[in-house]
Nucleic acid binder design. Structure first.
Lengths: 138, 138
DNA sequence: TAACCAATGCAATGGAAGTGCATTTATTGT
DNA sequence: ACAATAAATGCACTTCCATTGCATTGGTTA
């Protein structure tokens, strides 16, 4: 069990207080968060810092974006089984129309999508919308 | 073969010159268009009018939105086989990373997506990114 | 023809993404 | 330990798209 500091360093991310806080914030969230979510959680921090921190995390591949169709970019930590650095990885995300939360179903694989002749598939974004387990009362 | 006027009226959309022009513009486009695309095509028209016209078309279900991950909403005419008013319809869209165009592959059905227990799927948005047939040279 | 309602146009707002630059903080070499 | 260097942070600003309020135009109907 590595510490967060060691983990960040292993990814060539310089450890700062702010980055540790943002990482912990993302880690304890079970859902994808927007920049504003992070902003609200750390009122002292500047929006730009958060923006660039997330961007750094993305480049170092410990965070990936989710476009769930709400028009606002969301972010979530990459987990085991999340090969988001691989172009052909299929991102399956679920957006709850009730609580408005978006989660990453990394363990839930779906079949390869076929495209018509002449088309070359490089990347697939799949967002399922509906009611999540918490809101459906199960 | 109904005229456009008759078609719009059958959908309870009042026919105006502007609406006819916008409808024709959408009809002759083979790809999904942004508001700005329409704006550029009709320099005389106000952006608001275009925006509200598209919104009316959406409400009357002759146009549907596409979120292809570029961050800019695109629109396209619903066609035969496009049951976008049905919640469970699977929207398959293809976004070309080369020419940046997005098309609606309505004839291309894909299998039902399964979600974990407790989750209720109401709607699926699937965007495949890659190289389109024109750009792949086939 | 007057009254009404929808469509249009203008102006302005809001939210999110992104950038330039100065400042602070951390790292490296001597 | 200290100077030189590079990265991280904070502030201000810009841009782009989506959206709304309000006044005006235009078409329908009684």
């Amino acid at each position: 069990m590595k510490t967060i500091e060691e983990f960040l360093e292993s990814k060539n991310i310089r450890v700062t207080a702010m980055r540790l806080l943002i990482y912990k914030f993302l880690a304890e969230k079970q859902v994808a968060v927007t920049l504003s979510d992070i902003e609200n959680a750390f009122e002292k921090a500047d929006r730009t810092t958060l923006y660039r921190t997330i961007k750094t995390f993305e480049e170092k591949e410990i965070v990936h974006q989710i476009d769930d169709g709400t028009g606002i970019t969301k972010y979530t930590l990459c987990e085991k089984g999340c090969n988001c650095e691989i172009e052909t990885d299929l991102h399956l995300h679920f957006h709850c129309n009730n609580c408005n939360e978006t989660i990453c179903l990394t363990e839930h694989k779906i079949p390869q999508i076929k495209v018509p002749d002449g088309f070359v598939s490089e990347n697939v974004n799949l967002v399922v919308k509906g009611i999540c387990d918490k809101c459906s009362g199960q």
